[in-house]
């Protein structure tokens, strides 16, 4: 495998509408920079994240996937992020089993007030993924549209 020096990873960030998406907006409002590799998908709650979405992202060539939700105890829907946390733990062991590096998926709690944390998290995550290099393990080349 050839390691490309100018590798720019594709990163999908699932953000809950109430905390993390608002946190992401706040880092924009405060003009806090983070890499353009990160593309955000808005979901109502972190518990809306079906692990299948993450597998699909990897299959389609994402190099890293991050889920951001409200801090435990602060879920807009009271308990959603607890479900998300449990489901992600299960997904982590599945990904381990499939040989996907543990660092390629991450869960972070970012509140609507934590614009700085959002930007810092995305900077750090992008660095981690860049260091890991492209994700080839799950990528299904049949999925590529030319």
């Amino acid at each position: 495998m050839q390691v490309n020096e100018t590798f720019t990873p594709t990163i999908v960030a699932f953000c809950c509408n109430w905390c993390s998406y608002a946190g992401a907006d706040l880092s924009g409002t405060n003009r806090l920079q983070y890499p353009a590799n990160v593309k955000i998908i808005r979901i109502p709650c972190s518990c809306r994240l079906n692990p299948m979405f993450i597998l699909r992202a990897f299959q389609r060539g994402a190099d890293g996937v991050i889920l951001c939700g409200c801090h435990p105890g602060d879920c807009h829907y009271t308990t959603g992020n607890y479900y998300a946390r449990r489901r992600m733990t299960l997904l982590f062991s599945l990904l381990d089993f499939m040989g996907i590096e543990r660092e390629r998926t991450r869960v972070e709690w970012v509140s609507a007030a934590e614009g700085a944390k959002f930007a810092a998290t995305m900077n750090d995550f992008t660095q981690t993924i860049t260091r890991l290099g492209p994700n080839r393990r799950l990528e299904d080349l049949r999925c590529k549209v030319e």
Binding site: T10, V12, K39, I41, R56, A57, R60, A62, C143, V145
Partner: peptide
């Protein structure tokens, strides 16, 4: 959501 994922990873 899958359509969004696909579009981003395309």
């Amino acid at each position: 959501i899958l359509a969004e994922v696909d579009a981003i990873c395309r």
